[in-house]
Amino acid sequence: MSGGNLIVMEKRPITLHINGCDIDVLIEPRKLLSDVIREDARLTGTHVGCEHGVCGACTILIDGRPQRSCLTFAIQAQGKTLSTIEGVVGEDGGYTALQQAMHEEHGLQCGFCTPGIIVTFEAYLKNNPDPTEDEIRDVLSGNLCRCTGYQNIIRAIKKAAAMIRVDVGGA
C-alpha cells in the first residue's frame, strides 16, 4: 500500500569517456547507458528503438566492440572507451567511406536505424575489409530496419568495403 519498497536512488557522479572526451554526469545507478548518452551527455545520434536488445538502433562501440547501449547501465561503462555515431567522422571532417556509400546507394530512408548500422560496420570493416555478402548479411542481422528492405544497405556496405580497400591499397 505504500511506496516503502521503492527505493528512490541517490544520484552519483560518474565520468564517461565518449568519442575521446571525458564527460561528467550525475546519474542514478539504475539509469541505462543509452539514456545517459542521450539525455545527460546530449549525444542524441544513438537511438532507442526497443530497449530490449533486439533492434540494434542503440548500438555503440564499447572498447571498440559493437554493443547495445540499452542493455547496460551507464555506471558499468566507467573506465571504458565509448564511441558513438557522433564520433564517426571522415578524414577531412566529411563522410567516411561507409557514410558516403550509404548516401550514394540510398541505404537509409527514415534514418532511425542508421547510426546503429554505421557504428557496427565502421568497426566491422576495419577488421574485415573484404567480407562476402553472406557475412555482411549475417552481421547486419543485428540491426532491424523497417524502411529499406536492407538491399541498398548491403549494396552500400559492399561499396564502402571496396572504397576502403582501394584507399588502403593506394596508401
Partner: peptide
C-alpha cells in the same frame, strides 16, 4: 542524408 548519417537528425526524443 547528411544530418541522418552523422547523428544530427532530430527525432522527437532528441
Amino acid at each position: 542524408d547528411y544530418r541522418l548519417l552523422t547523428g544530427r537528425g532530430r527525432y522527437i526524443d532528441d
